[in-house]
Nucleic acid binder design. Structure first.
Lengths: 244, 244
DNA sequence: TAGCTTCTTGTCAGTTCGACAGGAAGTGCT
DNA sequence: AGCACTTCCTGTCGAACTGACAAGAAGCTA
């Protein structure tokens, strides 16, 4: 495999976080303004290096989640690895990106360590005039794409909601992440028909305007059957190429 | 983020390959018998360290694919990262696992560098009495699970076939990976109904026994619509808990 | 009580799905 | 050739599901 004199190269390991949430019925990602030099002043994903050689990678991700965003107990899953040789001027940095999903939060993220943390709509973050540090633009795009497809066949949507939620709140998640509009009546049927997706949570109620809605909580199953198929069902506005 | 005197820890980066193929109508994974010390003599996934600090991770994966399995031009996609602190006695080794899919090959893999490379049925590799080095058992399980779910909504199945294939060959892929049996007539309808999945490749023919089959090749689309939903449709043998 | 809002239950026609029958097109044997 | 056998492929039928839409239920405000 390799001769005895050869030593494998050492690299630096970082974690980056794509933290998604819903604000104002639109999908947002948390970005911070970098306070240190490579790309100082530009927007980037929260993240950082492994603290020491014994820290577990997912633990590091949760630590950064807490330090930089003040978050705990959120859905967290590995997204991908980004290790292209030239991506970081400090050396060979390999970054493990995680996807985190959180319910809508009280406000602009408290207790953060970073210079400035702000929720940015995904649309803005990915628009061509926004500048993101390193290859973070691609990481954001990958994270959003992951969320989009996982919504179809897993119960990931519930991670965007609080512990209990109404069906129309859940519908807003699908509409925001997919960028389309759905019929509330058919959505009801579908969501309730997927076994183990959501379970009723007491006949409680809520909201202030119309008829009170029933509350649900996440069900036991993660994989949805039948899946929530996303038919090209474009919103009221103009043509919107149903690209692959 | 961190004070100036602090230095991020260096780690060793490896790649591991879960190479799947179909042999004898069953899903197989390529394992090698380790020739060097940590876990010498036990079965493990092909893989190795990054060659130098400038090698791209995916390039390293393709290099190992070639060196250890004699393969090139196969489907290759990132699977996950495995970096738990105690997983390798040599130090802090973080391994990037890739999932590779290849059509059935001429024979037991030629030109390999490893002591012994052998195709093992996934069933055997994951059975409790098989011993795999490091955390490779879990990596194999993750790879198989990834293949199973990607078969549902992507054209991944075509990666198991040669450049051209018949519909029943494609069906065998689904049956082997999912471990269930499907009705050929309904499978036809479904596969042909998924736009962009497969396209006819001349009215050619093949096989030696029954009526010649039409040949197809992979179509332009990777995402399947409608998806190939996997209904619990158990094979002729006994009860088989439809677990999640 | 009327009017507004939002939630929830239905209905209906078109489509898809799973189970199954039967014809089409090769090979090999007598 | 004729027949048995194999595999491929096209159809059919009732059940289940889907998307479009109507109408009732249940709260608030005026």
């Amino acid at each position: 495999m390799f001769d005895d004199s050869w030593e494998p190269p050492a690299i630096l390991l970082a974690v980056d976080l794509v933290i998604l949430t819903l604000r104002d019925s639109r999908l947002h990602v948390l970005l911070i303004e970098r306070g240190i030099e490579p790309h100082r002043g530009t927007l980037a994903l929260p993240g950082g290096f492994l603290r020491d050689a014994n820290e577990d990678i997912e633990d590091a991700a949760r630590r950064e989640l807490n330090e930089e965003a003040g978050l705990a107990d959120v859905h967290l899953e590995p997204l991908n690895v980004y290790g292209e040789p030239g991506r970081d001027p400090r050396g060979r940095v390999v970054s493990v990106a995680y996807l985190a999903i959180t319910p809508r939060l009280p406000e602009p993220v408290a207790g953060t360590d970073a210079v400035r943390a702000c929720w940015t709509s995904v649309e803005d973050a990915l628009s061509s005039d926004a500048e993101l540090a390193f290859d973070h633009r691609r990481i954001v795009a990958d994270g959003v794409e992951r969320a989009r497809t996982k919504l179809e066949h897993t119960a990931l949507a519930t991670a965007f909601c609080g512990e209990t939620f109404t069906i129309s709140e859940l519908q807003q998640v699908y509409e925001a992440v997919w960028g389309i509009q759905l019929d509330p009546r058919n959505f009801y049927r579908k969501v309730q028909g997927a076994r183990g997706f959501i379970v009723a949570d007491g006949p409680l109620r809520r909201t202030a305007n119309g008829r009170p809605a029933r509350l649900f909580r996440a069900g036991p199953d993660q994989v949805l059957y039948p899946p929530m198929v996303r038919t090209a069902h474009v919103a009221p506005q103009g043509p919107n190429g149903s690209a692959n």
